[in-house]
Amino acid sequence: MTVPLLAVDKLEVVYQRAITAIQGVSLKVSEGQIVAILGTNGAGKTTTLRAISGFLGLDDARVTEGTILFRGAHLENRPPHEITWRGLAIVPERDKVFPNLSVAENLAVVPRRRGTADGRSMEEVVYHFFPRLAELKRREAGLLSGGERQMLAIASGLMCAPDLLLIDELSLGLAPVAVGKLTESLVQIRDELGISILLVEQSASVALRIADYGYVLENGRVVLDGDAQRLLGHADIQEFYLGHAGGSRRSYRDVKQYRRSRRWYG
């Protein structure tokens, strides 16, 4: 087996020197894979993502245990721009575009690592995937619709020609139609450019539809992982993330019991 692109091993993050947010989280992303991290609010998804992308310092948090290896290089507690330069771009959850800059300027501010193999400029590549953005070049990003903003955010992430794209809450606040189009584009980007993608999502249905592999986080630990197809079929996922009640409805007490067991034995 080859060395994975991104390997997170037994990661532990402590906030304000007092609160442990995630503990013993391990995950892998291989070349050309789309991987999803699922979990409810407060499960530690965003913390994991921030640890990988170097944004813990803002909240007075630190990686205290474990390693994050990207192409074999350590990323723990490195400054964010350096992580981006190494080929790991992030599309954040909120405030994802510069509102007072035009679409073209939003793309232009990104420092680029290199062009593409076939000699096209990154702009051309981006407009190829998102032709809508080419039409809106001159428009201020603050005036775009939610879907267009998400497009621009992904496009900006692509501008630095990453090897891995981290996307935080792709579907948040977007219409299902827009989400469908965006996920199609992601698959297309992966297929054509060979860029790996790590999705952090609350919506399991969106993420598992395009992902190859998935991790489920609860209370700061990975409680479940496996191929996307297997996860989609898993009874717990069906019930707690996709909202399909199983054959026999469980009582509230059973659910609580389930949560508790996940917390302690997961």
């Binding site: 721009h81 954040p92 509102p99 800059l101 990104v110 900006s156 630095c160």
Partner: peptide
């Protein structure tokens, strides 16, 4: 200017600017 644009970007949203790989 490319750096001028980056200055505007950093002024608007420093966090996002860093996420885009701009050396704040």
């Amino acid at each position: 200017g490319r750096w001028g644009m980056r200055m505007r970007a950093a002024g608007q949203d420093p966090l996002l600017a860093a996420q885009r790989g701009i050396n704040l």
